[in-house]
Amino acid sequence: MTAMDATSTGTTRAGTRTGPGVEVCGSDRPLLARHVRLTFCRTRQRRILLHPETVVVLNGSGAAILELCDGRHTVAEIVTELGTRYRAVPGDEVRRFLTRLVARRWMELTDG
């Protein structure tokens, strides 16, 4: 991998997009970047997102979204799934949440 590679987030997967300014659309299949880990904290009884220098304590819907970011589910499918579990989580909110993670390069998007 060269330093000019647009996906130098610590991953070498081809055909991925990440970084600021990337818009999330319904056919994208989000996948957590390899340097980010989703885990469960027994002490806090909460799902946690871990990064080399950052910890994010997730709420229930945030955790539910991230668990579906496996590179197989599309954003549209994730929105539908969240809608059945949490009536109060509209699709726009899911897309905004994912867009923020893509902008921080914690999430990659594959399409097709």
């Binding site: 000019m4 590679d5 647009a6 130098s8 987030t9 970084g19 300014g21 220098e53």
Partner: peptide
């Protein structure tokens, strides 16, 4: 570099 490196 914002698409490929975090500069702290």
């Amino acid at each position: 570099l914002r698409d490929r490196m975090d500069v702290i």
